[in-house]
Design a protein around this nucleic acid. Structure first.
Lengths: 301, 301
DNA sequence: TACTAGTGATGCATTGCATGCATGGCAAGA
DNA sequence: TCTTGCCATGCATGCAATGCATCACTAGTA
């Protein structure tokens, strides 16, 4: 068994098609066909069921799929570990959309000052996709919010962040000195789409308080939520870090009285992969970097 | 990087000598030299420091040493997993000398009846060596006694076993109805060599009872201990399973009154390697198999 | 039913690359 | 200075993986 063959196998499994996998690898279809053939012969088991129009992994193939990924990851890790000088290299950071634009830029700036030779690649995706990418080794570290449901991944709490009530400047509540949860129970809400975990945080806070937010709009970006709130489509709860970047005077932000809604920002890593010195330095930076204005709640239990 | 190269690398590291490694692999020295060369070129780092008369691993080489072993183990595991029918295959069992001859034969007989196609290989060695073999993937499962000091290995208690006082049939204590610890405090002991963990168990029991056994003999086998005891060189504490196989009338065995000395027999496995169905079946057999006459103490807390 | 398109397998000639042999270069020890 | 024990390098060789052309199969389609 050779590593080349495992790479070939993974490509074929990915495309479920020899011809296209061969193109992707840069090999002729017969060559690829034979490469897989040799692998199957060595293992004594077929890896694919060949039907006329499509192929499918056999049970053996499914087993090898996981193993091959692990083996090739380990080879990559070994290479990375050997060439690790702690300065150069690449780090792939993933973050959810409600964190990425507000939190990452300032952190990455610091990181770049400290490690100017390092290359940073940012992925922005939903929690679910981001965890998958982490498991698959497509990214090295992910910044997301609780709850995180992932076996085989390591989750580390970074800080708690308050969710602030946001409303239009001319909203009736704007003049109120102190705003309670009950004041917002029946108000229309502008929320993010259901794929965003921030919606979950907001909804679960409301449920704790025994009401369900009436959502009038579902948008895909936090900036859009803010715009719609500014246009008086409703109110919303947004992370403090999003407020800090809102220069517009048409929206005002208030901290709720009583138990405040929060989200817990976490860093997720894949402990089964080699953590380069650069990565460990990045983790360390994350641990000691709080966004502006969250210090009061930071690391609260 | 190819798996062949990693195998070559491991052999060179093992022998610290290209010429002899080449012989062991069945390759000419120049071919091996170039194989390593290619690997070094691909990694961008030298793996060996070549002095005139000997070579040594560089830092990079040391890193790769561990990784290469992991990678090749994983490849072996993948092959094993794919061809795993739960019936055929090989299982390599290691046990300490004070367990192996008394416990394994009957267990292996049962195992062979249940899995006649499986091949069993037995290693007998001291705890330390046996754990190293387990870590290196030279054996699949080890049977030993507490305490086990090993990171990255999984230890599972099988049963507790009493250590019986053994003495010559004409020993003054032989006629005594009940024997206390204090009765044996000042007696000369026949003990196993210091590499054997059974000695540790005996000595630590004695220390608990605030005395140190006076050892008159150090032998290498339990059968030899029994013989010397029979010849009245001293008394000893031996596992119950060793008594069950002692057909000789010249020695008598007694259970001590009060807190009895015991050893805890455990099964150790390497969780980082693939556990074949056959192995898991073996583990299961071990879990449910007690040696004769230890049932009363079995699995006691 | 015949035709077409899309798929993987196979026959055959080619070539790239790892190999073995011979030898070089180096340094430690006699 | 010679010998010995190393690893590296030049060169020719042979094998094995490759590419090209083609086959075999079958699901749609006319």
């Amino acid at each position: 068994m050779e590593l080349e063959q495992l790479k070939h196998f993974l490509k074929v499994a990915e495309f479920s098609n020899f011809t296209r996998a061969a193109e992707a690898i840069g090999l002729s279809q017969p060559a690829l066909s034979r490469s897989i053939s040799r692998l199957e012969q060595e293992l004594g088991m077929p890896l694919f069921e060949r039907q006329t129009r499509n192929i499918a992994l056999t049970d053996s193939g499914k087993i090898l799929l996981g193993r091959a990924r692990q083996i090739l990851s380990m080879v990559d890790d070994a290479k990375a570990e050997i060439n690790d000088d702690g300065q150069t290299g690449r780090i792939r950071v993933a973050a959810i959309p409600t964190i990425a634009p507000y939190f990452l830029p300032v952190q990455l700036k610091k990181f770049h000052q400290r490690f100017p030779k390092a290359k940073v690649i940012v992925h922005e995706d939903t929690t679910e996709n981001l965890l998958r990418k982490l498991s698959d080794g497509v990214v090295d570290v992910a910044i997301a919010a609780f709850p995180i449901d992932a076996k085989y991944l390591h989750t580390e709490r970074l800080f708690d962040e308050e969710l602030l009530l946001v409303m239009s400047a001319d909203h009736p509540l704007a003049s109120k000195k102190s705003i309670q949860v009950k004041d917002i129970e029946s108000l229309p809400f502008v929320l993010l789409g259901e794929a965003h975990c921030l919606s979950d945080s907001v909804v679960s806070f409301c449920k704790q308080k025994s009401f369900h937010p009436v959502s009038v709009e579902r948008t895909s970006q936090l900036a859009m939520v803010q715009e719609l709130v500014g246009l008086n489509h409703g109110v919303s709860l947004v992370p403090q870090m999003a407020r800090d970047l809102d220069a517009n005077e048409t929206r005002i932000y208030r901290s709720l009285e009583g138990t405040k809604p929060i989200r817990t920002v976490v860093m997720v890593t894949n402990p089964y992969r080699y953590q380069s010195l650069l990565q460990r330095n990045f983790h360390e930076l994350m641990r000691h970097s709080l966004p502006k204005n969250v210090s009061s709640l930071a690391n609260a239990t």
